[in-house]
């Protein structure tokens, strides 16, 4: 790719209450540190989304924000075209839920249509899932050398009332070791369908899980990236993984 990698942070002010904008910071820095040119567009409600980007990021938000975001994104259609041409669309928490076919809002569990980019549906669970979560990434589609051992572990903080069920076209992103994740009987977390990926953990998730960050970049770029050793991230991962495992035993 000769032109800069283009990343779009979608509606930060609506879908950004959990610090998920950090995912954009992480992706742009990991490109920059490798000497790969990139641009970041922060698109706010009312702005048109760029139609030529490689990666679109959606974060967490409240019920009302979800509904508004779906309405605006459906009207303007960029994300649908992006998914169709194979650009990466990555949604976290509420951002994950709205990528699905339906989700519920409010105390009355009103069923709302999602963007329909992931074959998943979300409804309010029996309890709210709040706390540290640890999952193990499944071998990702098309990945010739899947992550192994601790590298495949995803650590984060989940905070969601919706539980998500996968349809036939979506694959689970990970299996839950500790925590709730999708909250379905199969103990899975997140979903992937083509280049569209949804997941629950904040942290933000890409800051705590550089392998997942690089997977998104590699999918967008279509080639492998050089390793990027960062001892402070390794140390944080060891700390978080160790802590959650110890506390779940206690």
């Amino acid at each position: 790719m000769t032109r800069p990698v283009h990343i779009v942070l979608v509606y930060q002010s609506l879908l950004g209450i959990y610090g998920d904008r950090g995912n954009a910071t992480v992706l742009t820095k990991r490109l920059q540190w490798r000497g790969i040119e990139n641009t970041l567009t922060v698109a706010e409600p009312g702005d048109p989304l760029p139609d030529d980007a490689d990666l679109y990021l959606l974060g967490g938000g409240e019920d009302g924000a979800q509904t508004t975001a779906v309405r605006l994104l459906t009207e303007e259609g960029t994300l649908h075209r992006a998914a169709e041409r194979g650009s990466v669309v990555f949604g976290v928490c509420a951002g994950y839920q709205i990528l699905g076919t339906t989700f519920t809002v409010g105390e009355m569990d009103r069923v709302m249509p999602g963007l329909g980019l992931l074959d998943v549906s979300t409804r309010r669970g029996t309890t709210r899932a709040v706390g540290e979560v640890l999952t193990r990434l499944r071998p990702l589609p098309g990945d010739v050398s899947p992550l192994a051992g601790d590298d495949a572990l995803v650590t984060g903080f989940e905070n969601h009332g919706g539980f998500t069920t996968l349809g036939a076209d979506a694959l689970p992103l990970a299996d839950v070791e500790i925590g709730i994740g999708n909250g379905d009987a199969t103990r899975t977390e997140g979903a992937i369908q083509g280049s569209v990926i949804g997941t629950y953990p904040h942290g933000p998730v890409l800051a705590r899980n550089p392998a997942l960050a690089d997977f998104l970049l590699e999918t967008a770029l279509g080639h492998r990236l050089d390793p990027l050793p960062r001892p402070e991230i390794d140390k944080l991962r060891q700390e978080r993984i160790g802590t959650i495992r110890r506390s779940s035993r206690g």
């Binding site: 950004g16 959990y18 610090g19 998920d20 950090g22 903080f157 942290g203 933000p204």
Partner: peptide, 9 residues
């Protein structure tokens, strides 16, 4: 607050 994600804001 148990979630430190806010740091990124």
């Amino acid at each position: 607050g148990r979630d430190l994600s806010w740091m990124w804001d």
